[in-house]
Design a protein around this nucleic acid. Structure first.
Lengths: 254, 254
DNA sequence: CCTTGCAATATGTCGGAGTAATTGAGCTTC
DNA sequence: GAAGCTCAATTACTCCGACATATTGCAAGG
């Protein structure tokens, strides 16, 4: 048995409890374990069909109690990543069983080197859903929705997409659109994907300076929604997503 | 506090272990608890902001160990339904935090009387995604995909939608289309929604005899995909979803 | 080839020690 | 005297390790 000093406990031992509670990988110990195992699975370190042999062995290796490990496994099971059966051990399920749209799973998928094919799938889904959302928003928005969009747009103008505040404003803008659709299912879906994709945006930023000014494209979407023109809103959002895809794709190919 | 004789243990006490293991609400004890609490939350029995006060109190009331209750809470936490913090108790999160696209959450949502608005949201999402999926399938399908669709279609003809086998064939047909898109994200999303919606299909069946023969509509989709005509495939799938929505809506209004 | 017994392993249970956060009392300040 | 702040006690979650149980894969024997 090799002591690898997994540093799961070490994090706690440093007494830096505040950080762990506010923005650690998982706020709690089992959350940290779930994060560790989740990223290992998503990164392909464990293949579907592999077995995480030994409840006790794992608990010892990670230097945590069996309870903590068990609760982490419950989390992974709840997200469809693994399945535990007596005697057989805990096995990684085939990819089709994974809840790829779960925010945590998405976060784990993008924790390491994101799979290019998966990123493309996500953008494709986004290209399907977001224009449709813009269409619905153009039909159903009220004054409050428009105000939220306008404010977010103004914030985007003030800061740029290179800053945290700017990216937050971008998220706010898209969220305002989703809210205007009055569709909860659409909201949670796109919010999850958007959050994950924004991870790749930082990626993109790191690769090179922003190649174009995104404001005019956003304004076109906003104007169409204000005008209550569903067709124009969908088309404007379509080009927005396409451009984002282009930028990300070219950034990842280098 | 009312004693409601939770009967979670009683199920085990009857010695009917096989049933619980094969097709119970959740295969395991904590799964059963998660199902119970999950349906209670989804049905609005617990409102967002409410607190499930007391780990020990709940464990005693349900007559299970604290560990089992705790693992169930982990599952709910993983799905974004609740959040546990020391001293404050376990609180139900606002609806926007829920992973509404999680298969289990969907199942819980449809366990009782499904919320009409939510069903409409789901159909709306389906109406957005499935035609787009058909479009992609028409572009990317290969011979094996077509064979799967053809077989499923034949099975649908043999059995009707009134039988389990027929509904399974329907699912196979749609899954074959999703597989042909070569997009995993699309696959898991629509599979989840489809499964949930099929719950309402049984509902529909219970309400009245099937009002129309669904085969011709399916054939139109199939033909368009065979021909490699994306536009026609998307349109044909669009009418298919619309008709399903109509049927379900009229069935729920009575 | 099928059945049966064994053993390995995950599941369920329990109670206690530890820890973090809320609450309210007591104090200080204006 | 009222308002705001500090701090400690309470409270509930969190983690732990050992024990009991049930399921199942595997192998031996019919």
């Amino acid at each position: 048995m090799v002591k690898e000093s997994p540093s799961l406990r070490a994090e706690e031992a440093t007494g830096n409890g505040k950080d762990r509670a506010t923005r650690g990988p998982g706020r709690r110990l089992h959350g940290a374990i779930a994060h560790k195992l989740g990223t290992a699975i998503l990164s392909g370190q464990y293949q579907p069909g592999d077995t995480l042999s030994g409840e006790v062995a794992f608990a010892e290796e990670l230097e945590v109690s069996r309870s903590a490990y068990r609760e982490a496994i419950q989390v992974l099971t709840a997200k469809g990543l693994v399945e535990s059966r007596p005697k057989a051990g805990t096995r990684v399920l085939p990819r089709t069983r994974w809840n790829l749209l779960d925010p945590d799973v998405l976060a784990w998928a993008f924790a390491g080197e994101p799979d290019i094919q998966f990123v493309r799938d996500l953008f494709e889904l986004r290209a399907i859903v977001e224009p449709a959302a813009a269409r619905l928003a153009a039909q159903r928005r009220d004054k409050d929705d428009l105000k939220l969009m306008k404010d977010a747009l103004a914030a985007m103008r003030r800061h740029t997409l290179a800053t945290d505040a700017g990216r937050a404003a971008d998220r706010d803008f898209h969220n305002a659109i989703l809210n205007a659709t009055r569709n909860d299912a659409l909201l949670v879906l796109t919010a999850s994907i958007g959050a994950a994709v924004n991870w790749t945006t930082q990626f993109k930023q790191r690769a090179r300076a922003l190649p174009r000014n995104p404001i005019p494209d956003h304004v076109r979407v906003y104007d169409a929604i204000v005008a209550g023109d569903p067709k124009a809103a969908a088309e404007a959002m379509g080009v927005l997503v396409d451009l984002a895809l282009e930028d990300t794709a070219s950034a990842m190919e280098r």
